[in-house]
Amino acid sequence: TTVKVNGTKYKFDTPEEAQKFAKKAADKYNLKVVVDGDDLRVE
């Protein structure tokens, strides 16, 4: 599972880890998590 934040992709072994990271990033930058198929985007 990958998470894309500000054009940078981060790869995670499990969707749970990816979800946690995406949520933290979204909170930090005051953005929202967008599900894109198997991957997540923070925008």
Rank of each mutant, 00 (worst) to 15 (best):
T1H: 10
T1K: 07
T1Y: 15
T2D: 03
T2P: 01
T2F: 11
V3K: 01
V3D: 00
V5K: 00
V5Y: 09
V5M: 11
V5A: 04
V5F: 15
N6V: 06
N6Y: 11
G7D: 06
G7Q: 06
G7R: 05
G7H: 06
T8Q: 13
T8L: 13
T8F: 14
T8V: 15
K9V: 15
K9D: 11
K9G: 07
K9R: 12
K9W: 14
Y10Q: 01
K11V: 14
K11T: 14
K11W: 14
K11A: 09
K11E: 12
K11R: 12
F12R: 00
F12M: 01
D13F: 06
D13K: 12
D13V: 07
D13G: 10
T14L: 04
T14Q: 03
P15L: 13
E16L: 08
E16H: 07
E16F: 08
E16K: 06
E16M: 08
E17S: 06
E17T: 04
E17P: 00
A18T: 01
A18E: 01
A18P: 00
A18R: 00
A18K: 00
A18L: 01
A18C: 01
Q19W: 15
Q19R: 12
Q19A: 12
Q19P: 00
K20V: 12
F21R: 00
F21Y: 06
F21C: 07
F21L: 02
F21Q: 02
A22K: 00
A22F: 03
A22H: 00
A22L: 04
A22E: 02
K23H: 10
K23G: 06
K24E: 15
K24L: 14
A25E: 14
A25I: 15
A25F: 15
A26Y: 02
A26L: 03
A26K: 04
A26W: 03
D27L: 12
K28Q: 11
K28R: 11
K28P: 03
Y29V: 04
N30K: 09
N30M: 07
L31V: 14
L31S: 13
K32P: 09
K32E: 10
K32D: 09
K32I: 14
V33G: 01
V33R: 00
V34S: 08
V34E: 08
V34Q: 08
V35G: 06
V35M: 11
V35T: 09
V35P: 08
D36E: 09
D36H: 06
G37M: 05
G37Q: 05
G37V: 04
G37S: 04
D38N: 12
D38I: 08
D38W: 08
D39Y: 11
L40E: 02
L40T: 03
L40F: 09
L40Q: 02
L40I: 12
L40G: 03
R41Q: 06
R41N: 09
R41G: 05
R41S: 12
R41H: 08
V42C: 12
V42R: 02
V42S: 02
E43Q: 09
E43L: 07
E43H: 06
E43I: 11
